[in-house]
Design a protein around this nucleic acid. Structure first.
Lengths: 149, 149
DNA sequence: CTTTTTGCAAATGATTTGCATTAAC
DNA sequence: GTTAATGCAAATCATTTGCAAAAAG
């Protein structure tokens, strides 16, 4: 999504266009991969020296409302944020919390239909596979020492 | 899972059998549905007056390691815990955080295979559908007032 | 000008940790 | 007896909130 499209999307819903929102959005999509709010802040800090975590969170939540981002990879200590549209699936290690991408497409049509039947406006779906990452399989009683993410 | 099976499972892996673990497990499975750690504590308090949240967390995490429970429904402020084996899927409202069950089966075989190909020992999968719950669809700009869960 | 957004500091709230005590084995 | 588990209090840490100052429309 270009700056132009972002601006339009913001105005359409009555939100103001601010340099913070534009720059955070750019940093966020430039990162490309899922990122924590801290990582987004780090990435944007050079252009926005006074940016704060609350502002980043506010922007990310707003992007979620615009449908161009979402919280992802639940269960890990820190939420990860994903730029759309390639909503992808994840594996999460239950021992160390490591998160890895899963590049497969799954057929969630029935689930989405069921959600709508319950009155829910479904916007996307994410599959989370839980288990043990390679490193934690060899460890006993989960000494948590994998690199998070 | 019966008390007997739990005891066996604990001993098999070198964990001790304690009344706390047995009672927390019983309370947890009696609840049946996904529950927060607080709810499990509340449920077990009459039989374990001195039980504390850390003990409940420790037990739930241990159950997860035994494969009889898991953290679920990421993205909501508070983690929910599910008793196995009926791992089910969820809808989560991005505005108010409400979580609802989704009783459909989805074919995650390809995803599980992909996870194993990456060296991950996959133990189960959960689909999370994100969007807006019925009540939040009618509200503008997400005033967060739905009943959580 | 009016209303939203920002930035800072402080609050919140779930989950963890440290450690002395107690209970399993 | 040894070692692991409990219980309590205190710490952690991501995320929110309150509010005055600044910026957008």
């Amino acid at each position: 999504m270009t700056d132009r499209e972002l601006e339009q999307s913001l105005r359409e819903r009555g939100y103001r266009v601010t340099p913070q929102r534009v720059l955070i959005h750019r940093a966020f999509t430039d990162l490309g991969r899922h990122a924590t709010a801290e990582e987004v802040l780090a990435r944007v800090e050079s252009q926005l020296p006074n940016a704060s975590l609350p502002t980043v969170y506010a922007a990310l939540e707003l992007f979620e409302e615009l449908g161009i981002a979402h919280r992802v990879a639940a269960g890990s200590p820190t939420a990860l944020w994903d730029p759309r549209p390639q909503l992808h699936h994840h594996v999460i290690c239950r021992s160390c919390g490591a998160v890895e991408d899963l590049d497969v497409s799954i057929d969630a049509a029935r689930a989405l239909r069921a959600a709508r039947r319950q009155g829910f406006r479904a916007e996307g779906s994410e599959l989370i596979v839980r288990g043990l990452c390679e490193r934690c399989q060899t460890r006993r009683h989960g000494s948590h020492s994998c690199e998070p993410r």
